[in-house]
């Protein structure tokens, strides 16, 4: 029979905020089933975030594993003052930044951009230019753009994840937009 301090992780689907806090408490007690539940709940979001940043299937996979290992090791340090998702994405942010800062990681897409479905409000050519522009942004700006538009975080959450003042986050987004605007203008000329 399972010990009393083992989290009930049998429930399928997304976890509520209180569920996630319970899971984190269980992970802090080194309950593997609780970590598995978090892993299943966050895998796709973390993978897509990491893939969007690195364009490497293998690297994205490694980042997700590194994040979960870090969650396992440092769950005790989670004090519950923030959302679990913000805390986990903070780890993912640092892991991704670390990978991006390694010279060995070239931006080498292992998928064909032509395969992705079309988005609204921009021509396919413009979207390609924008994506190319996002890839050429400095890592901190690129991460901010992805956290805002891909993960959908508020400015407070981005500030917490990146451990920066809100004004720094806003400044990064401002500069990112200016650079991407320049990319689009260059593409038109």
């Amino acid at each position: 029979m399972q010990a009393d301090n083992t989290a009930d992780t049998r429930r399928e689907g997304p976890h509520t905020v209180s569920d996630e806090h319970e899971l984190m408490a269980a992970v802090a007690r080194q309950d593997r089933r609780a970590l598995e539940a978090l892993y299943r709940g966050y895998y796709t979001r973390l993978f897509r975030f990491a893939f969007r940043m690195t364009h490497s299937h293998g690297t994205a996979d490694e980042i997700v594993n590194d994040v979960m290992l870090a969650v396992w090791r440092s769950a005790k340090s989670f004090r519950g003052s923030s959302k679990v998702s913000t805390w986990i994405f903070g780890i993912a942010y640092r892991q991704t930044l670390k990978r991006l800062s390694k010279k060995s990681l070239a931006i080498a897409p292992d998928f064909d951009p032509d395969d992705v479905p079309a988005a609204e409000d921009a021509s396919p050519e413009d979207r390609d230019w924008i994506r190319h522009g996002v890839d050429t942004l400095p890592a901190a700006q690129k991460l901010a753009v992805v956290l805002v538009f891909y993960v959908g975080m508020s400015y407070e959450e981005v500030a917490e994840v990146t451990d920066c003042p809100v004004n720094t986050v806003k400044t990064r987004m401002f500069h990112a937009r200016k650079k991407l605007k320049g990319v689009l203008e260059d593409s038109a000329s």
Binding site: F47, A122, V145, L180
Partner: peptide, 16 residues
């Protein structure tokens, strides 16, 4: 436009 470009989903089979 930036949001739309960034939000374009990775093709599902790529997500392990």
């Amino acid at each position: 436009q930036i949001a739309a470009a960034v939000q374009e989903e990775t093709p599902t089979p790529l997500v392990t």
